[in-house]
């Protein structure tokens, strides 16, 4: 699938982090982007938006990222969820991967890393 056709869901409680991620995705050529500000919203938007890939923070209010991953993967076992967080500790990483996350990126994010993740899964637009 071409990057310009994919649907991306950003789950982060920081409006700044969401904006920065959205700017990077648009630069790479992504056109369909949805945002969620907490773990519960991520689960709900996953059901309605059906994204091809999710970039998800861990530490979030209402429902944290690891629980959101678990909820999504219970319903959608093939969900492509990439964790983007400042807390890449052993326990958080282990839990995220066990719950179904496919990759982990330590914050602060770089556009080259996001591009690399997308190009390893989708075609350049």
């Amino acid at each position: 699938m071409n990057i310009s056709e994919i649907r991306v869901l950003i789950g982060d409680d920081s409006i700044l982090a969401r904006k920065q991620m959205k700017d990077i995705l648009e630069e790479v050529g992504v056109k369909n982007i949805e945002e969620a500000a907490n773990g519960q919203e991520v689960v709900e938007k996953f059901r309605s938006f059906k994204p091809d890939i999710v970039f998800l923070d861990i530490v979030m209010p209402v429902k944290d990222g690891t629980v959101a991953i678990s909820d999504i993967c219970a319903e959608f076992p093939d969900a492509e969820i990439i964790v983007i967080s400042s807390v890449g500790t052993q326990s958080y990483l282990k839990q995220a991967i066990l719950n179904g996350a496919k990759d982990f990126v330590q914050k602060p994010i770089s556009s080259s890393k996001i591009e690399e993740i997308l190009l390893s899964r989708f075609e350049r637009s």
């Binding site: 409006i15 500790t89 330590q106």
Partner: peptide, 18 residues
């Protein structure tokens, strides 16, 4: 949000180091 983001980023890295 930048104030929250800086603190969260720093504390996250602190936890990773620990």
């Amino acid at each position: 949000a930048s104030l929250e983001d800086f603190l969260n980023l720093h504390n996250g890295i602190y936890n990773v180091n620990l």
